[in-house]
Amino acid sequence: MTLSLLTNSRRGVSLFQSASRSLSRTVQKNQPDRDPTGNGGIGGSMVNEAEHSQTNGRRTEQVETTHFGFQDIPVNEKSDRVRGVFANVAENYDLMNDLMSGGMHRRWKASFVKSLGATPDMKIIDVAGGTGDISFRILDDIKQIGALESPIKVLDPSVPMLEVGRRRASELNYAGQVEFEIDDAEELSTVADDSVDAYLISFGMRNVTNPAKALQQALRVLRRGGRFMMLEFAKVDNPIGEQLYDAYSVNLIPSMGEAVTGDRASYTYLVESIRRFPGQEEFGAMMEEAGFRSVQKENLSFGVVCQYSGFKL
């Protein structure tokens, strides 16, 4: 019972409030039960009604929408709003990763970096790399066999995140070995065709408005044999684990975010965006469709996170 209560509320805190507001309206209109979500409960139709009234209230004409957490927003607004989220969380981003994942993100990233197996002659770009966490791990890793010949490029559309990254780079004495630049995964305007050995994107694809477009750009900048690697939240493959994970992420993470950063909404977005992102099979198919070959998917922690890899051949 407790579990099902928790999962019912997974549609998110902000929506829950507007849903309860619209509940009274629904009752007054005395409409028959519509349940297009197939959730089979009053809760389901309630939330759906809320989504409708929200969208209708904002605009009358049909606009192409995309997801922003559990909300649907016009496509052209997403990147601004994502930038807003990351501007809010930048300072405490790495601390929050530790708190939210119980330190697990370190193991996921360690596995990611190990799979890459960087060699000194590789040109690496760290897309949506923000605070440079992945890049610093690669630099740590490669120390044993030498040093990278060309600096890792960290690309991110969020200026505050890049600021944090630059500061950390000089603190870690990696200043000359990482470059930070403003760029969007859908554009990669600062990266030449066929110039990159490894394209890394760690917990970033979720925030890209059009992932298919980002995959095309990845394919463009990679040279033959170059590798696309992505670390991203995915679908837990175990029903009990899934319930626990849902309950944990929807109920605890926004509160933790509020306690640490004073910003609940941004963390609500982060959690919701995880649920809206395609699962392992779906994203793997997208990679193949984009033209990547030898696509591999490896679940970490029962599929909480998945490591994707594909080659340009």
């Binding site: 050995d197 490894a198 040279r223 033959r224 590798r227 690697m229 591999q296 051949l313």
Partner: peptide
Amino acid sequence: NLSPAAHGLFP
């Protein structure tokens, strides 16, 4: 004639 990153073909 592939990128050195292609060693990941054998994960």
